[in-house]
Design a protein around this nucleic acid. Sequence first.
DNA 1: ACACTTACTTACTAGTTAGTAAGTAAAGAA
DNA 2: TTCTTTACTTACTAACTAGTAAGTAAGTGT
Lengths: 197, 197
Amino acid sequence: MLTPPPTPTLPPDTRTRILDLAEELLLERGFNAFSYQHLAKELGVKPAAIHYHYPSKDDLGTAIVARQLRRLRKWRDLPRVADLPPAAQFEALLAVYDTHLGHERRVCLFGALAADFRTLPAPMQAELRTFNRELTEWLAQVLAVGRATGTLRFVGSPAAKAAQVLTTLAGALQVARVHDETPFQVIVGQLRLELLP
Amino acid sequence: MLTPPPTPTLPPDTRTRILDLAEELLLERGFNAFSYQHLAKELGVKPAAIHYHYPSKDDLGTAIVARQLRRLRKWRDLPRVADLPPAAQFEALLAVYDTHLGHERRVCLFGALAADFRTLPAPMQAELRTFNRELTEWLAQVLAVGRATGTLRFVGSPAAKAAQVLTTLAGALQVARVHDETPFQVIVGQLRLELLP
DNA sequence: ACACTTACTTACTAGTTAGTAAGTAAAGAA
DNA sequence: TTCTTTACTTACTAACTAGTAAGTAAGTGT
């Protein structure tokens, strides 16, 4: 029997644990449905400890979206994503949404914040707009190359198709939450059927 | 100059005014983002007056969804909707979403509640599931007839296409809220391009 | 005329919210 | 060794939350 190799990841510090839990609650229950008390209780610290790291809930919310934007950019530029052919890049995108589904049917960041958007602090709104814009631009490029090389099929402009597909995926996770995983699979199946020749 | 005909609609009573305002706030800011105090202040009554008509916020929320479900059934069965050819029924559906967009970019009921779904009272969850299921079944039927008569074009099952289209429309209103009306028009344009031959 | 119902208001509670100020224990730097 | 910084806790506030109980004024029915 081998002893497991020493884990290379340090145990996350309080700052990160707060952010992780806040993100989890945001994606599972919505931004206005969790409080510093909830976070503190579950983490075994006092609410003031959270104010120490994130003085206001606005700061905390903005940090969540900012981190997701950093992750998006990192993921998009990863060689194992950036070097894929378009159809496989599309599948990689679907895999991300499938992961959300697997994690307690979490919605995506956009789907979690859109309804409450007007109650969000301005920096959070700005970061979310950037997040959505960059993701849409990335997919539009993928679709354009895919159609040019004959591996993806659609009518209309790549930008319009990208906006439509991402909107559908965000909505599909919401439908999965309201019903179950079935409609998500049905909708993704329909997307594949239409895009992949 | 003609004097306007005497309005046949009575001025709405407090009970209705509460429900109207609560629905408006729900669709514009989310269910966890308004309180009995907000409602009371804007209506010029005391919070206890709202508890008189809707004892708990659960009751109020459930009443909002129940009314929307009644409206959906009524709309769907209206002769000027039910007797239309499929392509025109689809356009009538788009017109409803366009109306939401025109009303301060309100999201649809489903889009407003999906993210916070797990924080909602059980009767509200049940009503929302029914709402979404009946709307999807209606559209599936429209699409099936439309394809059979050659006025609508799509691949896959009518049920899958209906789920995809409605999900996209709900998401499109959310995108409009985060950005502006342009992406909504783009997405709806894409839907028309694909469905109408 | 009297009883009853409707639609509220006034006055209150207990719990939760974000946020602050002051204190403290431990670690690292000078 | 002392100073400083980091990462908290304790103790607090003011505002807001849903919700309740008791009272009241205006009708409605008999």
